[in-house]
Design a protein around this nucleic acid. Structure first.
Lengths: 333, 333
DNA sequence: CTGAAAGCGCTTACAG
DNA sequence: CTGAAAGCGCTTACAG
């Protein structure tokens, strides 16, 4: 099954009795007389012609493809971002090439380069990650979106995650909780670092002697579920838990159910992200909202801007967060 | 920012003092003497060379790209399928070009053709859908995966959705429910038709006079949530609800919470799909399991087979489903 | 406005 | 085993 275009612009040209370059002109809006255009259009339509992107990419100076690197597509977080990015990219006629964790990171970068992407948006970079750098080395513009890397030479956009952590602590402290724990995300992810820092800083301000127990959830449901079961079954169970993202909070909520621990009666839980599901009555998660869609849109826009002006100064945007009180927090028993 | 490869095989060839075709051979495993290969490999490595897919696609007989058409990426259902497909496709060295509902359907097909996809997998086709046909017309192999179209000339794979509907009815009837309602999916989607048919058929067998109220949920959370609120607030509220997919069941569960209706005490709810979230303690949805990942894998495999043997007879696979009893069903009050 | 020609970066026969 | 050459389907100067 040869995947050659069933009909090429040369064949269109022949049938319309014009030069192939004329077909190209009507396709791309060059100057063509109305009569000629008419004739070519008719043949184009007759065959429902579509030009080969491969040929276009090869000859043109641009491929029109942008790479988007995400982690796990099944985390409800990423589809929302991808969708928002698609929307802004498509409006500008760019296509999106998605790289997920189904391929090894190194291979992902290689794919992006073979694909000739004009730029790439990383959504899940970690501190020591050599991957974004591997792209910039080759002159490919990179945007760090949602997760950032201090000092990395790229446009970056993120939520005010430090403030997010502070808000969570503020809320829990205000409710009267003193036995605090935190379910942490991926070590080295800026979101995890910043949210953790913000939370601890606010607790320290309140009382430097107050400890914050930390368990590792890796931003992952299953990991967090197991960790929560262990934590909740152990001695000195905390009365309040800050989860560095919503998915880990869901895991805690479910683990608490499994352990017969009432939320918020015996345990308060705060998440971070506010993905749509957190508003479900069955979940009703108290959480810190970050402007998910906006972050994605800005990320895409930063790349667009960069493509338009390669030498413009680097941008770094930090978007505000807000606290959303729902049903998973209450004063300690 | 011209997105030309920073280094081409011709430049590699020059530096390695061989012909460009020799570089191509070491890249693609042609016969090359050990010494020559060594020399070329060194230069390849030095520049971290990646060949241009555009050029490869143009000259080769294949692009190595497979199109996957999904509906809404934010429906937790699709990411699972996409991931499973990615896995089998990548193993064979194929890339995946994702088309979501962010682009208009017609434009999606045009993109697939411009991209030169070797085949396409549709996951959300509906009965009257002209799109898959638009691809086969141009000689591009199509697989209908998850949602099928009777009589459509393509390989198809789906769950035994009729049985799924029957199992749901069986369960509810067995529990003693007689006031039944169904939240229906997208009209024209095979899954909706089959699940509905199965459910109604089983009810009819049990008692031809028993009515089944139907409300439209369109496989969509928000639509179903609104429909459920209306249904549950109205007179003659059903005691049991079969939702044609899990997402709609979540909407019903949450709507019931919002209305203060106890599930399963005052209302039994059965879903269909069994996506991972249905097993969460906070949800604990009684549902019909379909082998989601398997369906996606078989879909990808059918396309692979078709690419290997264009003239093989058309396949249609129907995979078995199973009933999963959890916490959202009970005998009527 | 229109055509002939060059060339994008590769793979693939074809010679030697 | 290796090189020279053709050619994939386009866009883009360059002439006319």
């Amino acid at each position: 099954m040869a995947r050659r275009p069933s009909v090429t612009s040369t064949q269109i040209a022949r049938e319309a009795r014009v030069a192939q370059s004329t077909v190209s002109r009507v396709l791309n809006g060059g100057s063509v007389s109305p009569q000629t255009r008419e004739r070519v259009l008719a043949v184009l339509e007759k065959y429902d012609f579509q030009p080969s992107q491969a040929a276009r990419s090869l000859v043109g100076s641009r491929t029109g493809v942008v790479g988007v690197v995400i982690r796990d597509l099944t985390n409800p977080f990423y589809p929302v971002m991808v969708k928002a990015m698609e929307q802004v990219l498509y409006e500008r006629g760019l296509r999106l090439f998605l790289v997920t964790d189904v391929v090894a990171p190194e291979e992902g970068v290689a794919m992006l380069r073979r694909e000739g992407v004009e730029g790439a948006i990383f959504t899940a970079a970690v501190a020591s990650d050599p991957l974004p750098g591997r792209l910039t080395e080759h002159g490919i513009p990179v945007v760090l979106c949602h997760r950032t890397i201090d000092g990395f030479p790229a446009d970056q956009v993120e939520a005010d995650n430090v403030e997010a952590g502070r808000l969570a602590a503020e809320h829990l402290l205000g409710l009267g909780h003193r036995r605090l724990a935190m379910v942490a995300g991926v070590a080295g992810a800026s979101t995890a670092v910043q949210r953790g820092d913000g939370f601890r800083a606010r607790v320290r301000e309140f009382d430097p002697a107050l400890p914050v127990v930390q368990v590792e959830g890796g931003f992952d449901y299953d990991v967090s579920y197991a960790a929560a079961r262990a934590l909740l079954a152990g001695p000195d169970r905390p009365t309040a838990l800050f989860c560095q993202n919503d998915v880990m909070a869901y895991a805690v909520l479910n683990a608490a159910s499994a352990c017969g621990i009432d939320v918020p009666g015996a345990l308060s839980v705060v998440g971070c992200d506010d993905v749509p599901m957190s508003g479900w009555e069955r979940i009703a998660l108290t959480t810190v909202r970050q402007p998910l869609v906006r972050i994605a849109q800005v990320g895409a826009q930063l790349l667009l801007d960069r493509l338009a002006a390669a030498d413009a100064p680097l941008q770094r945007e930090v978007l505000p967060v807000g606290f959303v009180t729902r049903g998973t927090t209450a004063p300690p028993a």
